[in-house]
Amino acid sequence: MRQVIRKWGLICVLALSSLAQLKAQAPVQQQFDAANVLFREQKYAEAANAYQHLIDSGYQADNLYYNAGNAYLKLNKTGPAVYSFEKALKLNPNNQAAANNLQIASLRIKDNVDPLPLLFFQEWFITLEKIHSPNGWAIGCIVVFWILAIAFMLYRFVPRFHHKFIRWGMYGITVFFLGYLTMSIYVYSVATDDSTAIVMQTSSKVKEAPDAKSRDMFEAREGMKVEILDTAAGFSKIQLADGKTGWIPVQSIKVL
């Protein structure tokens, strides 16, 4: 089912753009391979630069971010490493390796605050969310809707299919469809959400007010994941995982 949806997704979504990209694909892949070679040779700084170059060129591939994260981690740059792994996971929530390495990178964050443990239903929801990619949910939504429409039309117009089982089946598919639609909307809102950020500077003082002269409240460590609540005059109001809030210069954080 998923395979089919994937396939459909590729056909539907990428059909238009793929032709144009095929041309560009080859040199990009070469650059990526070259960066991988640098990584293998333990030239982590060069590898990180090569990956970053591709990222800056605008290529969005989860493994590109994942590899860049690994290179940064080897260079002990916790902030960029965490950012890259988070980005890889955002592009592909099912990237297990990125999830694993993100966990390791998080261990390096100084006095990191553990986020509150999730409740069981929140965990279920996250598992559910990971069943499909964001586009997978949208494609699934359409597929289910088509099935529902076909069933309804058969029920309606072909007397032979005018059967109570078909009707019940339709109720079931309707529930399915609503589920897919809800998830599509949710996943879309998450994917377009830009309220989370990663602290990129080694140690950034978090201020009481959006003003460089105001009192320091605490220190945000490199690699911490923060929630952006507000932005004003070059400062962002952030909230840490443990609920502490304060203002931090915009340039010390990078929005995911």
Partner: peptide, 9 residues
């Protein structure tokens, strides 16, 4: 390689 992941939704 995609320059932009289009959101199908």
């Amino acid at each position: 390689w995609q320059l932009r992941i289009p959101l199908f939704f």
